[in-house]
């Protein structure tokens, strides 16, 4: 790129989070990082335990410390280091400039308060609105998230709403202060496909209307392909690949990403049987040495268990950045990993 890239909204650099437990130290996130630019949707993909949610919690300062501690790294939001910020400052930012929506809308809403009360809380706290003003604003927020009969819903309790409507309420709460950044942690995993389609569509529309950035944490590559502009693939606490969605789905440059694609029935079905990634996600207490993926990788070489691979640019000249951390790709930059994995005959 010849142009100077703009300053990102959020920059996470070399973040390491550890949990000290009675059984030992869990390295939940180990040197991970990504940028979020203004107005974009960035998807963070990975299987359970890969550290994608812990990274997001670290951004919001929501990690439970004692057990958790940020061992190293920098989280910069609009030029401000959030790891150095005081708890009071974090409270000011949280829910105001950065908001989060969670996977399970039933457990993240308080069952004993009405929907209106829960939306109004943030409005009164962060924007200092009076009760009447907050109520009016809450009804507009529900209108914004396309809730039918918004004025009436304000006085209802979460149990009176369906799953999709609860997630809409969660989104309304998150948008109450018109954040610059919305972190959506598996926002549609608990929902049916037709409702999922509605919610994803809503998020896209809102992003266009409000111009915010979205970090979409998910394990569903279909959702990623439909919503994200850029993708970060995480595995066992590290980032293994970072690229634009188009480039990643066209030609993954990491064997793990290629393996994920072949695990999907809709794509893998073409070759008859699915080709799942062998083995299972490593125990975070007992991570493999070197490249975290190597015990499950069909391309593993001796060097993979000895040294840590680093994220390296792979794109052709003039193309958007595409980075991956893999020794095999270092040697064979043009290998078609998907085809090689499908044939099951790594060189």
């Amino acid at each position: 790129m010849t142009s100077v890239p703009e300053e990102p909204l959020l920059r996470i650099e070399n973040l390491s989070v550890r949990f000290r437990t009675s059984n030992g130290v869990v390295r939940a996130v180990d040197g991970a990082g990504y940028d979020v630019r203004r107005g974009e949707t960035l998807a963070v993909v990975g299987e359970s335990g890969c550290g994608k949610s812990v990274t997001a919690m670290a951004v919001l300062g929501l990690l439970p410390t004692p057990p958790a501690e940020v061992a190293s790294g920098r989280i910069e939001f609009e030029g401000e280091d959030l790891l150095q910020a005081s708890p009071a400052r974090l409270r000011e930012i949280r829910g105001n400039r950065i908001s989060m929506i969670f996977q399970e809308p039933m457990t993240s809403l308080n069952p004993v308060f009405t929907v209106g009360d829960q939306i109004m809380e943030g409005l009164r706290l962060h924007r200092g609105l009076s009760r009447e003003e907050a109520r009016r604003e809450a009804s507009h927020l529900l209108e914004l998230v396309r809730m039918p009969a918004p004025e009436q819903r304000l006085d209802e309790y979460p149990h009176q709403l369906s799953g999709g409507m609860r997630q809409r309420v969660m989104i309304a709460i998150a948008l109450a202060c018109r954040p610059r950044l919305l972190i959506a942690d598996e926002p549609t995993t608990a929902l049916d496909v037709t409702v999922q389609a509605q919610i994803l569509e809503l998020l896209r529309e809102l992003q266009r209307e409000l111009g915010m950035s979205i970090v979409l944490i998910t394990h569903d590559l279909g959702v990623v392909a439909e919503t994200a502009e850029r993708v970060v693939v995480m595995y066992a606490g590290t980032v293994v690949e970072r690229a634009t969605a188009l480039s990643l789905f066209d030609k993954p440059r990491h064997p793990y990403t290629a393996g994920l694609f072949l695990s999907l029935p809709s794509l893998g079905a073409e070759s008859g049987s699915l080709r799942p990634i062998e083995g299972s996600v490593p125990d975070a207490m007992n991570l493999p040495s070197g490249c975290r993926v190597h015990p499950r990788c069909p391309f593993a070489m001796p060097v993979c268990s000895e040294r840590d691979p680093v994220l390296t640019r792979r794109e052709a000249a003039g193309e958007p950045p595409h980075e991956s951390a893999c020794f095999y790709v270092d040697q064979q930059p043009d290998a078609d990993l998907v085809a090689l994995t499908r044939e099951g005959a790594p060189p």
């Binding site: 999922q196 389609a197 279909g222 439909e226 789905f249 066209d250 999907l264 794509l267």
Partner: peptide, 8 residues
């Protein structure tokens, strides 16, 4: 409604 893993 199924999201397909193909951005193109």
């Amino acid at each position: 409604a199924i999201p397909l893993p193909d951005p193109r």
